[in-house]
């Protein structure tokens, strides 16, 4: 069902976090660590991943929804692997280390939290549609 290679998958997930393509080394590490190897993805999981890879705009919504309703899903697992890999790359480490606050920091915290909740609502609807209607 999944016609994406590990490397293509790495590009999609990397872009979700970075808003740009991750570098070649990051893609290579994702392929090496291969989160699929311990997978027992259900057919619903496969449908969701298939949709996410073909519609990268949906990843934030699906991730937010599954954080609430199925936090151990296969999509979240693969995103989690990419998160850990990006965190262990010196090029991206500044995105993961503690950041100094400015006077707007509370606004950023609440805005990001509220955005995730909003995404979750839309994502739950999307999950229902995907799991009912199958491929893309």
């Amino acid at each position: 069902m999944n016609d994406f290679s590990l490397r293509q998958e790495a590009q999609v997930y990397g872009k979700y976090f970075l808003h740009k393509l991750p570098n070649e080394q990051t893609i290579e590490i994702y392929a090496q660590t291969n989160p699929h190897k311990t997978s027992s993805a259900s057919s619903n999981d496969q449908k969701i991943i298939h949709f996410a890879l073909h519609h990268p705009w949906s990843i934030g919504f699906l991730d937010a929804a599954q954080a609430l309703v199925k936090s151990d899903s296969e999509l979240r697992k693969r995103l989690y692997f990419m998160f850990a890999i990006l965190e262990s790359r010196p090029e991206y480490c500044s995105l993961f280390l503690p950041t100094k606050r400015n006077w707007l920091y509370l606004f950023f915290i609440f805005y990001s939290g509220a955005r995730s909740v909003f995404k979750a609502f839309f994502g739950i609807l999307l999950l229902k549609i995907i799991t009912r209607h199958g491929n893309s």
Partner: peptide
């Protein structure tokens, strides 16, 4: 909490990973 890295605790947050990262960078210290 610092050297065990952010990824180990991020999965406990009921948020999408991308937004959780932004929040956790402020909270981590």
């Amino acid at each position: 909490y610092q050297s065990l890295m952010l990824f180990r605790i991020i999965k406990e947050a009921p948020l999408n990973f991308a937004d959780a990262r932004i929040i956790m960078r402020y909270l981590m210290s």
